[in-house]
Amino acid sequence: MIKLQNIQKRYNTKAGFTYVLQQITLDIAEGEFVTLMGPSGAGKTTLLNIIGMLDSDWEGQYTLDDNSVHTLKPRQRLALNKQYVGFVFQNFNLLDSLTVYENLEAPLSYRNVKGAERASIVCDTLDRFGIVGKKDLFPSQLSGGQQQLVGVARAVVASPKLILADEPTGNLHSAQGQEVMELLTKLNQQGTTIIQVTHSEKYAAYSRRIINLKDGWMDGEVTPRQLPRKDR
């Protein structure tokens, strides 16, 4: 599904070029659950944004299914983003001025889904995530776990083939984190490809492949079984 070849991202600074990502070559098949790990500044989020087509300023070749992303114009990339990708953020990034219902409705409205259909999809999603009772609340009226639940629900509401989760458990306590990870696993089992960024080996263990990044370079790939036992 995702084929990255020699992906490179750099910034032009006074001191010369600063590389954020270098020579990233990676294949991810449809239905996989992949974790990007690495220390701060390793380039995890940057890589996630490139895959999610939020970042268009990079070099290399990126193929998403049969689409050569590197040849597409920014507008076409955004269209592809809408078709394929759902985002889950560490800080939830719910829209403060909208209710839970409206937050879920937003991605559908940007995809020109008609009103009646939109309502039906949002209600289904609310039901699926067990948050029907919260639909009229504002984000500030929810706990962190509930907010991330809404964040994940919002990411899947438009039925994306790919979910990109940037430290989805970063702001949650352990029980909440586990709940979110189980949710993502469930979505993966239903066929959604998931790529997550995390620092936690415990949550990385939910995925099937773990790709380590260091200083912008790929620093090997492991399976959850190869992780130290204490974190599993």
Partner: peptide, 16 residues
């Protein structure tokens, strides 16, 4: 700015 970024990440176009 942040909110606009989130909206764009959710699929909002420049026109929106």
């Amino acid at each position: 700015t942040h909110e606009i970024g989130v909206r764009m990440a959710l699929g909002a176009r420049s026109g929106d």
